[in-house]
Amino acid sequence: MTRNVNRIIGLILALLATGYLLLSYQLPTYDYIPVDADVIPKALGWLLLILSVALFFSKDQDSEEQKAKRHVAKKDVKAMAGVFGITLIYIMLLEVVGFIVMTSIFVFFCSLFLGYRQHVVNAIVSISFPIFIYSIFVFLLNINLPQGILPL
């Protein structure tokens, strides 16, 4: 089983190395430069290929603790996927909707999603925190964050 894990990762890394090498061999070279832009990438690509082969055939050295880490309950996977999804939506809409609104929504719903039940505290934090950060960045430090739909 654990040996299989190393095999799968080894294969993925070998694929990565191959792709990287293919791109490296397409890099243009100039005659008058002794060590051109392609040399180090080629070396790295081959090195990774060799290492991935070594991993493919290596025995697993993980401790029990490490193996336990690998087991993630289904509901945790769902929770992580949820946070990932919310973040993805946040990134997509940040520049359209604006920093304050989007961040408030993000903090509130992400906490709610993860099981935070003190709605009042949650609302206060998720509204005040973005406003605080926004004020510091925009008014004090002159670093513009997307203002979006708010007429601030």
């Binding site: 909707v97 513009n144 979006g148």
Partner: peptide, 30 residues
């Protein structure tokens, strides 16, 4: 959780709709 996330999604759609109208100027932060 389902409720929370669907509420979240709903709000976003509403907001995106509001934001879409003048998104051109909205992007020009500042």
């Amino acid at each position: 959780k389902v409720l929370a996330s669907s509420l979240f999604a709903l709000m976003l759609i509403v907001l995106a709709a509001c934001g879409g109208g003048d998104s051109e100027s909205a992007e020009g932060n500042g």
